[in-house]
Nucleic acid binder design. Structure first.
Length: 288
DNA sequence: AATGCGATCAACCGCTGTCCG
DNA sequence: ACGGACAGCGGTTGATCGCAT
């Protein structure tokens, strides 16, 4: 491993700073120091802990990797859904979004967005911050995530986390997800408040996440264009004629980007891709 | 088995905001 | 009011890994 040394001239003394990947020894030093003295004053901390790193580097290492409550592993469908929803509302406000995903860091969310979501947008030849993409996400990706969530919850041994009642609503208890206020309104996803004490004025932790009960799988849009089109549509892949009622995916009009009521769906008419391309590109299994 | 390539993610960089003297 | 130090944020880079050829 090549650790690059960087000399900085700190007034009277010249300090050699380490860069690159952290060693186990450095991690141990940092963890031990923070356990004894707490976070904050990162430059001072770096010096006092005997770390030849910048305060910035120490802070980043701690917040993104060493902090005890960091959650490792793949993002759950709930978390992905929340990211999609919050990003559509706030844009690239990664730290703000991260505040609503306990245990996840802004860096992780940012990486997820850039590697998965933006890749998807590139493949669809849509700008990832465009109305078109946001709408495609809402109308196609989100329902599929919800479907995944449902599948996961029904196959899970922790079946008590999900209860489906007779009024066609499903309650999903999620520790990790908070409350996307933009979500549609039939499935209720209740959640515990985020561990962070920071609360958003626009997302109440006591609210419920309203999501429409998904149509039967055969009624799912099989492509973004189909979902977006919101019309009776012949699918050359399944060779069936499916209708997707946009009303079941209606969002509460909070973000400007969610103002689909005024959205011109004819914008999608310039999509030049074949339906089976759409299906392939939006294969959720590939996104997992 | 070797190589190329894309995906992923940890870490760095630069900018901005805030605090304090 | 001003300037410096510091923290935090978002964008970018580069190392590594895994898969395809």
């Amino acid at each position: 491993m090549a650790t690059v040394a960087k000399r900085i001239n700190n007034s009277s003394e010249e300090i050699e700073l380490r860069r690159g990947p952290w060693t186990l020894e450095e991690d141990t030093l940092l963890i031990h120091y923070i356990a004894c003295h707490g976070e904050g004053r990162w430059n001072l901390l770096a010096k006092c802990a005997g770390l030849k790193r910048t305060g910035k580097s120490c802070r980043l290492r701690w917040l993104n990797y060493l902090k005890p409550d960091i959650k490792r592993g793949n993002l759950t469908p709930q978390e992905q859904l929340l990211i999609l929803e919050l990003h559509s509302k706030w844009g690239n406000r990664w730290s703000r979004i991260a505040q609503h995903l306990p245990g996840r860091t802004d860096n992780e969310i940012k990486n997820y967005w850039r590697t998965r979501v933006q890749k998807q947008a590139r493949q669809l030849k849509i700008e990832s911050d465009s109305k078109r993409f946001i709408d495609a996400v809402r109308r196609f990706w989100m329902p599929r995530l919800l479907q995944k969530m449902e599948q996961a919850s029904t196959s899970s041994t922790a079946a008590d986390a999900v209860t489906t009642n007779t009024t066609n609503t499903t309650t999903v208890n999620s520790q990790s997800s908070t409350i996307p206020a933009l979500l549609p309104n039939q499935i209720t996803v209740s959640s515990s408040p985020p561990q962070s004490s920071v609360t958003s004025p626009s997302i109440s932790t006591s609210d419920s996440m309203k999501i429409p009960l998904l149509p039967e799988i055969s009624e799912h849009p099989t492509s973004p264009s189909q979902a977006i089109g919101n019309t009776v549509h012949n699918n050359p892949v399944t060779n069936d004629c499916s209708y997707v009622d946009s009303s079941i995916y209606d969002m509460e009009p909070l973000a400007p980007s969610s103002a689909m009521g005024t959205y011109d769906f004819s914008l999608f008419s310039d999509y030049q891709m074949a339906e089976n391309d759409w299906v392939d590109l939006w294969n959720m299994d590939k996104l997992w």
